[in-house]
Design a protein around this nucleic acid. Structure first.
Lengths: 142, 142, 142, 142
DNA sequence: TTTT
DNA sequence: TTTT
């Protein structure tokens, strides 16, 4: 019991999100995300790109389909999940995905037209939870 | 716009959580958390401990007050917040806290009796969101 | 360019690390790690376990083979890497691994006999880099 | 013992890095970093900015002073450290800083002229450590 | 004091 | 298949 399974990525979308509506009305979105790192080898600049399968559910999928497009730079937080499936030849295969729990578009305003977006899964947290009404007082938790 | 402010800690509580109920019924809990790292200096084993002020709000504060006690090992995820206050002599001071967004008790089952606890802020996420009904099928997002 | 690919796991080893020495003397270690999360579904406690393929290189592999055993609770930080290989039937397959960049054994002292271990890749960082010689003075960076 | 103290930030520099050379030749750089989050309150868009004190040592400080300037968007990974000092009136004060362990400039090429930079503390890791010579073969750790 |  |  008691474990942590967390992934943090910053990268560019390789494609527009692909959106599907499952039976029951649940929305799922997915897209490939590229994270690149550059290093030197024998004086040469090598770029190594890793591709990640990003999956988003429900409300987060809706927000993604609205605000994310191919090429955008995003911060994604989520968890790893490996699942099995059968391909067309009924061979069992495995795929590891990053199930997104929230995301934030990075970069300049010009990069994302008018509307910045931050997705957070399920019921959007009332962020006002974090506004401390005692902030300005001398009456502190510490 | 568009930033990330994330803290990840694994450490032991220095004290039991201190719980307060603000006007309006909002619950706040706080406790000090120690994260230690050990390194070698001139062949000697040096332990360096850092203390963090952890603050939890609302539901997360309730869960913490119930399941966390001095000495427990916990994983905490949250964000940094620096706020100012006036001390008793009315001198302006600053304190940086980690506002917890979720936590998980680590360690062995025997460490926390029968009930493992994972807190997550605000409305508890329906974790079943993450169960993919198409898991076993060949009908996949990828 | 410019991406982030980071994985943070806390879980238990499913097996002892398996160590291999490649041609050229490079050491590689690998083991499966389980991260479990517990949630409620219809009032029932459901535990969901995710298995991760952890790979460690060189010095980190050596440290892991020495201090990690089946059942141990560890914190692992690393990055995702998906690579292809051919199985015995020469079918191309993909596997996603977590290439560890450092790890820390968690839990009680009694859990790991006398010697706590923290691995960090390549040349072990001189942690004394972080000791600020001006700490106690009034001569500060800020 | 055995703890984790990790901070992950994405934000903009509020000022150019300030570089100091300590006795003994050690370089320290520091700058304020802003992480902003936007949320809705009563239908109004509220932006909340948090300021962090970033400190970098030695090689990382050198790289930062060269490639980071006011306004740049950066990913920073580091750890929390609270230290005390005496102000001019010899009053003991505390400040919490983020001691950077590595950073990456984010954003478009045009944002950072010609030279992308990634800093990593101390002896730069040979990233080739991570290139698996067995990648293309069927001879795998798993 | 940044950025959108 | 992204980006620089």
């Amino acid at each position: 019991m008691s474990g942590i399974n967390k992934v943090i990525l910053v990268g560019h979308l390789g494609k527009d999100p692909e959106v599907r509506h499952l039976d029951g009305g649940v929305t799922v979105a997915s897209f490939p995300l590229a994270t690149s790192e550059t290093y030197n080898k024998d004086g040469k600049r090598i770029e190594q790109t890793e591709w990640h399968n990003i999956v988003l559910w429900r409300g987060l999928a809706e927000v993604a389909s609205k605000y994310l497009q191919k090429g955008k730079l995003v911060y994604i937080e989520g968890k790893l999940r490996t699942r099995s499936f059968e391909d067309k030849e009924r061979v069992k295969k495995y795929v590891t995905e990053v199930v997104a729990e929230n995301f934030t578009i990075l970069g300049r305003k010009s990069d994302f037209e008018q509307t910045p977006a931050t997705g957070e899964n399920s019921t959007p947290k009332s962020e006002t939870d974090y506004i401390d009404p005692t902030d300005a007082s001398g009456d502190l938790p510490f």
